[in-house]
């Protein structure tokens, strides 16, 4: 089965890749958003810790 045939998916290419594509896309985007959220909270904690050190 050549690559072109594979992508054509018997004429249903758009629908098949539209489904699989969006599913896998979201399963990549969600962890990335989480990583951003984690970095943000870590930065905030670090800043608070520094502020506390500054106070003492």
């Amino acid at each position: 089965m050549s690559a072109a045939e594979f992508f054509a998916m018997g004429g249903y290419g758009f629908y098949v890749w539209g489904s699989f594509g969006v599913t896998l896309l979201l399963m990549v985007v969600e962890p990335m958003l989480l990583k951003g959220r984690r970095r943000a909270i870590q930065k905030r904690i670090a800043r608070m810790a520094r502020a506390k050190v500054g106070e003492r």
Binding site: R38, Q42, K43, I45, A46, M48, R50
Partner: peptide, 24 residues
């Protein structure tokens, strides 16, 4: 995500500061 939530909610507890405070 639950780890993020824990960090956000426990951000001013001592164990979080020791854990994350020293990172930077």
């Amino acid at each position: 995500r639950v780890r993020c939530i824990i960090l956000e909610r426990e951000r001013d507890t001592t164990w979080v500061n020791e854990l994350e405070g020293g990172v930077r």
